[in-house]
Design a protein around this nucleic acid. Structure first.
Lengths: 348, 348
DNA sequence: TTGTATGCGTTATCAG
DNA sequence: CTGATAACGCATACAA
């Protein structure tokens, strides 16, 4: 009776590894080995493939993870999910994740206007994620990075603002990016060029500036230190503020290179609001190539990164680190100048 | 010996429910009940809280999910992760999720330029998610929606383009939005108004148009059917294309209401490129209030939705549906007109 | 190569 | 109210 009942129940319930084993006439361990690509005889292999297909068996990732002591989930941390550049990175991450049966936990460090890393610290302490991808981590995230590394939590950093060890790093070739901009502006005939970067300590900003400066010098153009500024953040607001400052007095330069697209967009808004014509009066260049830069008029000349690919790579590296915590690598991706309407030869 | 060893191992290993039980002198089931807020005597409760704190015990969500037959993961489906509006919704979803120990799987239906719902179908078939949130699902997603509903997969739809049953729906008050725009434009003095919506079958577009039309009529203004168009999509490209069409010949209207912000942005880019001044020659209004609309000059007048809140609500509804598959609800959120620089009184 | 037995950490059932 | 114990579905020593 109870046997009958359990049999019926088994028929209704969705098939497990045991069901497959029974139908194929092998042991569960054999099925498991088959599923994981370990050694199984040709015969068994064929039979199992058939039975699995027939039964419509799908493995339980929850059970697998429990058994392996994994969470089947990675964390992605960023200042704000609405970061224009991050969205593209996320697309790459998603793409890679979808091939891996791994889910995602997202954390904005600045969700409701103020900085709060507690969610991420909880992840780390409770080991809720198998690893984390830290996107554009800044100085204030130092403690967080430290926690990750101390806990031996596999960690990949994308475009970190400080150099780090004990974590994979994925970033773009900022120096080349700066150099490309230098060449473009020099070719257009600009001689008086200004730079408005992100925070001064930021690696991205420093490298882009270095590339720009060197590139200009190669062409006999000096980047006047008086025309180099560092803003408080990489956000559009900072660009707006900078524009307001600049426009208070007459200014001399004919081209402005900003730390990223968001800053450039903010600058352009305020400049245009004040009647400053772009690119006639001033050419503007950004970095990142966020989609929005192509959506306004004039379109923003910028330097594109293979952002989506970098997202995929970050994910791949993370999985490598999870399955085999070995050497830490630094991946540097090439960049591409994208010329739109915000740059033109200087008027005079 | 082996006892000693196992003891040592237990000390090193991180504490489980069993460790807690031993230390507190109760059975594991009692600990479980305590953890889940079921009935436990006051004494035991106090002791357990203490022991848990002391041991730094954290429960295994993997094991819990296995036991409960859950995945601890919800799916979020959208055309493109880079949808300007979606990003804000995602912030709300994330916010809610972070309080629930649930992770996320993201799927773009149009990841590499072409439509491919297979990833989502896999989720459904393999029951990899406890529920899904379908964002802005369109006509072509009908089959997908059908699959979700047929499988009894808890489903919440946010701003679906078609009306659906057997799923929770979260959307904004589109009619009120259209009416607000009507009032704004009428007050400014516009009489000749055009509308460029999304796809004609889209609920959002139809409701916004209806609200606009009625609002105008109340004020004695007729929305000329000749000035009503429907675009192929809600994306900026569609807006660009529409602008190119319009600008080929002289046009009569002084204000354009678009189906959403993305369309408006695309339109404005091309219009400005052609030297059409906004808002002097033509006022432009969008819907959604994506952050980018505030980032350009002139800033886009639009109708804001409580997008983040809607994300949270969608998530909450989903969890309700997961734990108790009851009545399907429709949640409608109020909207807010946001006036920026893209609208002004008509010149003549 | 294959099968047996045990562990992974919880929850739920059912006596006490 | 509490305690034993059987699921949950899979992976892996270890023995065969």
């Amino acid at each position: 009776m109870s046997i009958e009942e359990s049999k019926k129940a088994a028929r209704l319930r969705k098939p497990t590894i045991a069901t497959v084993a029974k139908h194929a006439g092998v042991a569960v361990s054999t099925v498991s080995r088959f599923l994981n690509g370990h050694y199984v005889s040709k015969d068994a292999r064929a039979r199992l493939a058939e039975v699995i297909e027939e039964l419509g068996y799908v493995r339980s990732w929850t059970a697998r993870n429990l058994s392996l002591g994994l969470r089947g989930c990675v964390g992605v941390v960023v200042d704000s999910i609405q970061d224009l550049w991050f969205t593209q990175l996320l697309a790459g991450i998603e793409e890679e994740l979808s091939t891996r049966d791994t889910s995602l936990m997202l954390a904005s460090l600045e969700l409701s206007g103020r900085y709060d890393p507690r969610i991420v610290q909880q992840w780390i302490r409770e080991r809720r994620v198998d690893g984390v991808i830290l996107v554009k981590s800044q100085r204030r995230e130092r403690a967080l990075v430290h926690e990750c590394v101390e806990t031996n939590l596999p960690t990949v950093m994308v475009a970190p603002d400080e150099s780090v060890s004990r974590a994979h790093v994925v970033r773009c070739d900022n120096r080349a990016a700066g150099a490309a901009v230098a060449q473009h502006l020099a070719n257009l005939g600009h001689r008086r060029i200004a730079f408005a970067g992100g925070p001064e300590h930021s690696v991205d900003t420093r490298q882009r500036l270095a590339g720009l400066r060197d590139g200009l010098e190669e062409r006999g153009i000096r980047l006047d230190p008086k025309r180099v500024s560092f803003l408080a953040s990489y956000e559009a607001d900072a660009g707006c503020q900078f524009a307001s400052e600049i426009l208070k007095a007459p200014f001399e330069f004919t081209a402005l290179v900003t730390g990223n697209d968001a800053i450039a967009l903010g600058f352009m808004r305020i400049a245009q609001q004040h009647g400053v014509r772009i690119p006639e009066r001033i050419s503007v260049v950004g970095f990142d190539d966020v989609p929005e830069g192509a959506l306004l008029w004039p379109g923003l000349t910028t330097v594109a990164q293979p952002t989506r690919e970098m997202g995929r790579a970050a994910c791949q590296k993370l999985f490598e680190a999870i399955s085999d915590p070995g050497e830490q690598q630094v991946l540097v991706y090439p960049v591409d100048l994208v010329v739109r309407e915000s740059t033109a030869p200087p008027q005079r």
